[in-house]
Simulated assay, not measured.
Amino acid sequence: MPRPFHVLGFGALAIDDIIYVDRVLTAGKGKVTERSTEHGGNVATALVAVARLGGGAAFIGWLNDQPSTDVGGDQLKRDGVDISLAPRHPSARPIRSVITVGPDGDRFIAYDDDVLHGTLEALPDEVLMQAPVLLIDGYSVHSQSVVARARSLGLSIVADIEWTAGPATDRIVALADHLVLPISFARSYTDESDPASILEKLWSAGRSAVVLTDGDRGSYVRQKDDASLWHVPAHAVPAIDTTGAGDCFHGAYALALAEGKRPLDCVTYATAAAAISVTAHGGRRGLPDNRTCQAWMTGESAPVPRALDADTRSKSAPE
């Protein structure tokens, strides 16, 4: 049946105080060149990316029940994300973060996440059926039963996990049929180092895809019913600010998945979106539209996915 949205999501909703400095973060000290306050959060920014790309996105995590204090929800609405399905609670508020960004675009995030996480346990099935894809992050450990119900209802679960809360995270990882993880977390979680071994260790019979994102080194992909493991190179672009690039990647991936694309094509689309997003300051200012993404994907310098065994042969070939 037709569904009004492409992607639903619940997870981090944040307000970020961003400080730009004139030296790399390892320099020890430097001067502030710019300050700004932006709205962010893994899932929230990913949903905004979906909306910017032309998709229908709805936030179904906790929002405050007082209009005067619902700053996070109001901004999501202004950014094109539907909030009408979100449960309300008087103590709900965004995470507060302080982000330091160096001249190379690298950043350090310090956050206070002592807030109400997850979503309403009794969220109706009718709400979950409003989209074919549910996007979650590590805070979904607070609402595992909702994720399980969404999976049983046939939704694709795209999981963006950056840290572990022990067995609860293990449960979420098992429920997700599309694991889209930073490779740094995947290495620590699996105790493996090379991408092929990590992809193998994270694979299971119920998995549709495992994707490892590795910044300007690109992404690694294993997808169902495909004997090859893939490397998708990143676009060569001078980064101004990498804040929100991973969130943009997840949003673009989820939208492409909702449109019926196979995981490798979802990654190719998300790679272009994330590259464009780092060309502007802040986590949301650089989020692209679909036309720009398509232009980057079809340009002469667009990276081409390669099977990992082909990459290995190329690197080992004599010069």
Rank of each mutant, 00 (worst) to 15 (best):
K224E: 11
D177G: 13
A254V: 10
A239S: 12
D170K: 09
V211T: 04
L181Y: 04
P233V: 10
H231Q: 14
D216P: 10
S193P: 00
G244P: 01
L255T: 13
T190W: 07
V232F: 13
A239E: 01
S184E: 15
H235R: 05
S208H: 13
H250S: 04
L199N: 02
L229Q: 08
R217I: 00
I198G: 00
Q223H: 14
P238A: 08
D191H: 15
W230P: 08
H178T: 12
G246K: 04
K201T: 14
A252H: 10
T169R: 07
D177T: 12
S208I: 08
H235S: 02
R222C: 12
S197E: 13
D194E: 15
R217Y: 01
R207Y: 05
I172N: 02
H235W: 14
L179T: 07
I198D: 00
V173D: 00
A209M: 11
K201Y: 05
D177L: 11
S228C: 11
F185I: 05
R222G: 05
G251K: 05
L202D: 02
D216M: 11
A245K: 00
H178C: 09
W203D: 02
R222S: 12
P182N: 13
G244K: 06
G215Y: 03
E200W: 09
P233I: 08
A254W: 06
G251H: 06
V173H: 00
D225N: 15
A245V: 03
